[in-house]
């Protein structure tokens, strides 16, 4: 469902990864590994179409990609339900009945975003993924500030709801989500110091 071919991407005009290729079949996930700064976030943003690649192709069904990072777009002055309802409306989807239970937010439904703890906010941010009905998820450290119980909640949703329905996920994470997913170490793709495609290249 997701094909990545010979993808090179840059951060701030400097190439960070070159020649990344992989594919993910429907119902599968892939875990990105690598030390800090190797370019996991850059790769995910490029895959999601937020920044153009230097070279290479990314292919997945149109209008099916969704990106999520630690900045999960929660409005502090809106309640939990209003936050989710907004993203559902933007995506033209209905708010699923069980979504609040799935992410253990039912008791918080009328609390303002600003009064949530970091972990609760994170759960709300992840619940957005269950609302918007997109098939291809690009997740950047989805479990930051989650406790073990919440990590389990999220992993269960990912496995039993999203992937089971034929979705795809590319996940950059340092912890073990307990998914039966292949891992891709990005270290070998690290761009050499003289890699092509930097924005300053014409000046050398």
């Amino acid at each position: 469902m997701l094909y990545v071919r010979n993808l090179s991407c840059a951060r701030g005009g400097v190439p960070v990864l070159t020649d990344v290729s992989f594919e993910v079949a429907a119902g599968q996930a892939i875990i990105l590994r690598g030390p800090n700064g190797v370019g996991k976030t850059t790769l995910l943003r490029t895959l999601a179409g937020l920044q153009p690649p230097i070279t290479g192709e990314v292919d997945f069904p149109e209008e099916q990609g969704a990106y999520a990072s630690h900045a999960d777009g929660i409005k502090t002055a809106l309640t939990v339900t209003e936050n989710l309802k907004f993203w559902a409306d933007v995506h033209g989807a209905a708010l699923p009945d069980t979504i609040l239970e799935t992410f253990d937010l039912a008791d918080l439904r009328d609390r303002l975003g600003g009064t949530l703890s970091a972990g609760q906010k994170r759960r709300l941010g992840l619940a957005r993924l269950g609302v918007i009905g997109r098939k291809v998820l690009f997740l950047d450290e989805p479990t930051v500030s989650l406790d073990r119980f919440s990590v389990k909640l999220f992993a269960d949703w990912l496995q039993n709801t999203h992937l089971a329905a034929g979705g795809v996920a590319v996940i950059a994470t340092h912890i073990d989500l307990g998914l039966a997913a292949p891992e891709l170490d990005l270290t070998p793709f690290k761009a050499a110091a003289d890699a092509d495609g930097g924005s300053d290249e014409a000046f050398l």
Binding site: V14, D194, D200, F203
Partner: peptide, 13 residues
């Protein structure tokens, strides 16, 4: 810009 580019390369090398 050339100085910038060379410095960036030097930092990465």
């Amino acid at each position: 810009r050339r100085i910038r580019a060379l410095q960036a390369r030097a930092r990465r090398a």
